[in-house]
Amino acid sequence: MARPDGSSPLTRIKRRAGVFLRMRRALRWFPPMLADVVRGRYRPVPWSALLWMLVALVYLISPLDLIPDVLLVVGLVDDAMIVGWLLTRVDRSLEGYRAWRETDG
């Protein structure tokens, strides 16, 4: 059954799967990018990717949350959603690095 916006359930599932793929891709590409930046092999430094990853890590380890983890399921879902959103930003910030690795790396 299609929604009022015209999207079918299959379209929505594919869109959400794309988010998980971007999160996984960010986690896969961030460590080699960081190593290349530290070694001086890759310039310009993707500061936005570093910042988004730092924010994600701080949010994960910080005791302050939008929804406290005491509310077990809701608190953990809140963490997963926010960190997932941040990882999609990391992935977008790494587009230049991925292009560089495919041509020069």
Rank of each mutant, 00 (worst) to 15 (best):
M1R: 13
A2T: 10
A2Q: 11
R3T: 13
P4A: 13
P4K: 05
G6N: 11
S7C: 03
S8L: 15
S8T: 15
P9F: 10
R12Y: 05
I13L: 15
G18D: 06
V19N: 01
F20C: 09
L21H: 08
R22M: 09
M23W: 00
R25L: 14
A26S: 13
L27T: 13
F30C: 09
F30I: 01
P31M: 12
P32V: 05
P32C: 11
M33I: 03
L34K: 13
L34C: 10
A35Q: 14
A35K: 15
A35E: 15
V37I: 13
V37Q: 00
R39D: 15
R39Y: 07
G40W: 03
R41P: 14
R43M: 02
R43A: 12
P44Y: 13
V45A: 08
S48N: 10
S48E: 15
A49L: 12
L50E: 02
L50F: 14
M53Y: 08
M53D: 02
L54N: 01
V55Y: 05
V55D: 01
V58M: 05
Y59M: 05
L60W: 09
I61C: 08
S62I: 07
S62T: 10
P63V: 09
P63W: 01
L64E: 07
D65F: 00
D65M: 01
P68E: 06
P68F: 06
D69G: 11
V70I: 04
V73F: 13
V73Y: 08
V73Q: 07
V73C: 02
V74Q: 14
V74F: 11
G75D: 10
G75A: 13
D78P: 10
D79N: 12
D79H: 04
D79C: 04
I82C: 00
I82M: 04
V83C: 03
G84N: 13
G84S: 03
L86P: 00
L87A: 05
R89V: 04
V90T: 11
D91E: 15
R92K: 07
S93Q: 11
E95A: 09
G96I: 06
Y97R: 05
Y97K: 03
R98W: 02
A99N: 14
W100K: 01
W100N: 00
R101P: 00
R101V: 07
R101W: 03
E102L: 13
E102R: 13
T103G: 07
T103W: 09
G105A: 08
G105F: 02
